[in-house]
Nucleic acid binder design. Sequence first.
DNA 1: GAGTTTGAAACT
DNA 2: CAGTTTCAAACTC
Length: 787
Amino acid sequence: MDVVSPELNILLPDEIMDTEAIVMDDDPPAESPAASGQSQPSDDAPIPMETDVLAVPEIVSLCSDAPPTQRTQALTTSITTDSTLCSTTSATQLLLTPSIASSSPLTLRPATASTLTSTTPKTTTSLGGVSLTSGGLQKLSANHQIILNKVASSPGADTTRSPGTTTITPGGQKFMVTAIGKSGQSIVLQLPHTGSKPGSGQGEAKANPQHFKVLTIGGRTDLKPVMVGQAVSSASQISTLQAQQLKTVQIAKKTQVSSAGPIKFIITKAVNNKGLTAQTSVSNVITGRVLSTSSPVTPPRTITLSETLSSNSKIAISPLKSPSKLTMVSVASQVPNSPQKSVSLPLNMAHLGQQILVQQSTATSPAKPMKPVQTVTVGGPQFKTIFPLSTSSNVQQIQVPGSRFHYVRLVTATTGSSTGQAGSHCTNSSMTAKPMVVNTAQVRMSVPIIPAQTMKQVVPKPLTSSGQVLTTQTQQRLIMPATPLPQIQPNLTNLPPGTMLAPGSGNMGYTVLPAHYVTQLQQSAYVTLASSSGFPTPTGIQTQARLPLNGLSTSDAASRPRKPCNCNKSQCLKLYCDCFANGEFCQSCNCTNCFNNLEHETERAKAIKACLDRNPEAFKPKIGKGKEGESDRRHSKGCNCKRSGCLKNYCECYEAKIMCSSTCKCVGCKNFEESPERKTLMHLADAAEVRVQQQTAAKTKLSSQISDLFTRTTPAITSGGGRMPFTFVTKEVAEATCECLLEQAEQAELIQQPQATAERMILEEFGRCLMRIISSAGKTDCPSINC
DNA sequence: GAGTTTGAAACT
DNA sequence: CAGTTTCAAACTC
């Protein structure tokens, strides 16, 4: 089945061109035309640079107006290959989530001049160069998601409609919009049928602007307006941020066989709920590519997936464990009146179980109002995005269940041009304007996301320092330096959690650094980030709504200080080093000859690459989470203990507080449910923990009492009012008491009492003295001690 | 704090 | 894949 033109195949990575996801035959991906193409990107092939991909349309328009292909029953959205920015009111979050349960493959292809028409026996949807193929109803697994699913036109199609599902029939084809987790929600995803031939050509796609209309999502009150990182092209008109409402459109897709999990593309786009008085456009930047959403005054609204060039952008790549999600948050200012350069952005959607979260924001002006904190649950309870609460934060912390790492998205604040009216400053009162020094210059960035083995990411070296950060959480992706550096192609898919690409030094355009370092950078005033920016202080990072990560809640992970490593020989570039293994930079460690820092970004990138070569799962959490919660957590590989009986922290299972499972190869294991040794240890541990808690509570209480005592007594003393007992133990009283005690001792000597009796007499006298002092406390005058 | 034990990671 | 070595954490004294 000829899906993509040969020219396009050249630009597409293997996995993208994997027709397995599209064609229903059994041909392996390698046999696909794209895969066999000589121009397939490979590790040895030159890295696609910006100039190399100019042929690729910069802007890919996600137009929902494409007419469906009758033969293939595919809905092809119009593809805009020009630089036209679809106007939009504000950032709208579009969650294109391939459903795990969906049986149809999902392919996301870069927009090119060629027609991107996916053909499949099942439903196929192409959105602005992104070919989304979905068949049947996908599994509704998450709340706050709208599943755009095409219903098989065949009468006998096996479609199980869930509550809140709306079926739209554009051009004879039915498309079902489903609000996940919400029954009866009024979700309308309108895909007008223009009657034009779907996906026949780039120009056609462009000429046929689709109206991707997202109406109100009923009952979705929890999905509050997201005010974070609103990127607005300077030329675009921006609506007020107040009216923005985050909406999520999920398109269920079938995961690819080769990948681990479902792919999710989350395109964050704010929807202006208020009157769309003016046509506004917002550019969403996805690793150098801008997703421009056009929102005319009246729906339908055109969503444009475009690329943008930005400089000094940071890309945080945070591979998640499962399902892997790709989260990309980029902050870039779209240069007004500047033609966008075409950048190949092979978004490999072939990787299953990947989720791409794109958050846009522009930083064309230094002063930028920040958006209120917003906690958004994306993709169900297992994926939450916490947006910065107020004011100052341009950091978005992403909580990913099942992962013990925190993902932080850094976005620049919107510029004045990002307001509802073009050229006008944001007047949204809800946003506390806080000066943003990030990304005052134009952002130029292009980061193609390419498939795992052959994928190359082109990350142009930033021209200027900016706060643009793109967080990518995906699997099997390679980070390519701005300059050709083929030997270093870290697999982004399995990069250390939270790994981010940051503008680096040397021949590397970007540095692979963990998202944790975002905080580290903030704390340490990392020059690249902090120098220009107003990187929010750590306090700006929201920590609420934590989800269990790797068996441990994020709060636990956060509260638990990271242990400093003590590496000596590994240079902290081996998995021996916990810091490195956890995707963190060494900070405040005791290591020697440490290379796990920005100063050795090249070495670190190589080390990551080496680790991933040895074990693609190297940076994934070892402790997976079972279906039923903690009890089902188990070590992915299992331990191999021989002497510890798996009852010491040598054992990774025991250390993770889980029992050994069948995957373990341990000898003499005592770490099982009925093990008496284990129970004993558990009891001891519990007792110790209780003791510690009691001690802590006692200390806290004591401190509180002392504090309270001083708080209450100080005014009394100063005011001359009532006196506390300790105030009566004056020097005179103490001396008198001592005299009494000495007198008692002399008495004992005189009567030649034994020492024990003498001591008792003295103690008794001391008791009497205390009683007199106490009794005198209630009197106004000073106590008198008389033996 | 030094030395030992241990098992994962790395290496062959 | 198995055996060995290296390494750093855990543990003991």
